Simulated assay, not measured.
Amino acid sequence: MRKLLYLTLSMALLAAITTYAMWAADRPVGHYLSDLRISLAVDQGTPSDRGNLLGIQPELFPTDYQSPERLHRKLAAYLHSARDQGLLNNKTIVVLPEHVGTWLMISGEKDELYQAPTLKEAMNWLAVSNPLKFVRALISAEGGSRLDDAHLRMKAKAMARDYQALFGGLAREFHVTLVAGSIVLPEPSIIDGALKIGHGALYNTSVVFNSEGLPMGQPQRQMHPVFAGQDGVKANGEHSLNVVDTPAGRLGVLIGRDSWYPENYRKLDDQNVQLVAVPAFVAGRGTWEQPFQGDRNSPKPTSGGLNAAELSEGQAWERLTLTGRMPVSQAVAGMSVFLRGQFWDQGSAGHSFLSRNGQHFADGNAQGARLLNLWL
C-alpha cells in the first residue's frame, strides 16, 4: 500500500513538473498593433555636407519588445520617415534614448507577462517562465535588491546578442552612425567586434555602431546611474569617457545624469570632442513638471548658480545638461533624447532637446514619437 502511495505521488509530481516545463517552454506570439507614426518636432539649421544629429524619441510599450523583429519594425519605420524627409545621409548620427535596449530582457516571453497590470507582476512572470535562468542569475546577483539584479542579469547573453544584431543592423540598413541608447549588462565589452558580457557587476552601457553595423570603440559605462548600488547597477568606477571618430566629427556619449557634471565635459574637451549625445530617461508620468529632486547619488552635480528648489525636473535637465555651452563645453552641438512610453504601471517623462553654439532648442510637446534634427 505504501509503495502504491509513493508511486502515485511520484507520478503526480512528475506530471506536474512535465506540465510546468511544457508551459514554461511555450511562447505563443500574440496579436500586435502599434502606432508607427512619428512627427518632426524640431528641425534646426540648414542642410549641408557636414551631416546632422538626429534624435529619435520613440513611444514604446511592452508588446514592442515581444521579439527583436517587432522592435526593429517600429524603429525602422521611424528611420524610413526620417529618410523620406531628407534627414538621413552618410554623415548622420542617430541618437536613441537611455534603456531602449534594456527592455530586451522581456523579449520572447509569454502573453501573461505583456498583459500584466504592474511591473512587479510582469517580473514575477519573467522569473516563473524562466526558472533555471532565474535561479542561476539569483545565485550570482549583487546589490541591495537581488531580485532586480537577477531579472536584469538572467537573459544578459541573449540581450547582448539581440542588441548588437538589432541596432547594428539598423545602422547598416540606413547607412548611419547610431548611438544605440543604453542597455544594462554585466561587465560588457567589445571583443573581436562582438558585444560580450562578463560575470561581474551590472552597468548601464551605450554602444555606438558605424554605418557598417560594427561597434565603435568600447561600450560607454554610465558614471552616475540612478539609485546606484541599490538595484545592482554599478557606477563606472574608472570615470573614463570613450570618444569615437564619426564622419560628422568626434563624438562623446554621456548617459543620462552623466550630462550634469562639468568635469565630464572637461574630459571630452581634452579629447577634442565636437558632438555630444545624451541618451536619457525620466521615470514617472508628469515628473517633468514636478519639482526637481536632484541627484540622489551626488548632492552637487553642478558648479554654482543652481537653485534646485525653484526648478522643475525639466528645467533642471535643460540647465544642467551643458552640451554646447561655453566655456564648460567646447562641443559644437549636443542632443538629449528621452525614452517615452508606458511599461505596465510605470510611465515616463522627458522632453528631448538639443543645443548648438550655446543656443538651446526644445520639443515643447512630448506626445507621441518625435524626431529632432540638427544640421551641423
Rank of each mutant, 00 (worst) to 15 (best):
P247S: 04
V243W: 02
G169D: 09
T18Q: 10
A165P: 09
L339P: 01
A309N: 15
V128K: 07
V282A: 01
M22E: 10
A180P: 04
K133A: 15
T177C: 05
T118W: 03
R325E: 13
V243T: 12
Q44P: 04
L79R: 01
L254N: 03
H72A: 09
P301K: 00
G144P: 03
V176P: 06
H239E: 11
L119G: 02
N373L: 06
L170P: 09
V233R: 03
T63H: 14
R50L: 10
K110M: 13
L54H: 06
H360D: 02
S48T: 06
P188W: 03
A248N: 00
E98A: 15
R266F: 04
G237I: 10
I38M: 10
A362F: 01
P58T: 05
N90Y: 04
Q274R: 11
W260T: 06
A41E: 00
Q57W: 05
G169M: 10
G350H: 07
F361T: 06
A116Q: 11
V233D: 03
G284C: 03
G324D: 09
Y114F: 08
I191H: 12
H80F: 11
Q367S: 15
S182A: 11
V184M: 00
L119N: 10
S336M: 07
Y32G: 07
R296Y: 09
P279L: 04
G284S: 04
G169S: 11
S10W: 08
M105C: 14
W103G: 07
V243K: 09
F343V: 05
L138F: 13
L5Y: 09
W125A: 06
F281Q: 06
R153H: 14
G368T: 12
P215M: 01
A366G: 12
L195E: 07
A333H: 05
L87H: 12
W23F: 13
Y265C: 05
A180W: 00
D270T: 15
A150I: 01
D162S: 09
I139S: 13
V337E: 01
Q164H: 15
Q57R: 10
Q293F: 12
A150L: 09
G51H: 04
R37W: 02
S336V: 11
P62F: 05
Q290K: 15
D43E: 11
L113Y: 00
P188Q: 02
V226F: 10
V253A: 05
H99R: 14
M223L: 07
Q218I: 06
R172G: 03
V276F: 02
L339E: 01
Q315S: 12
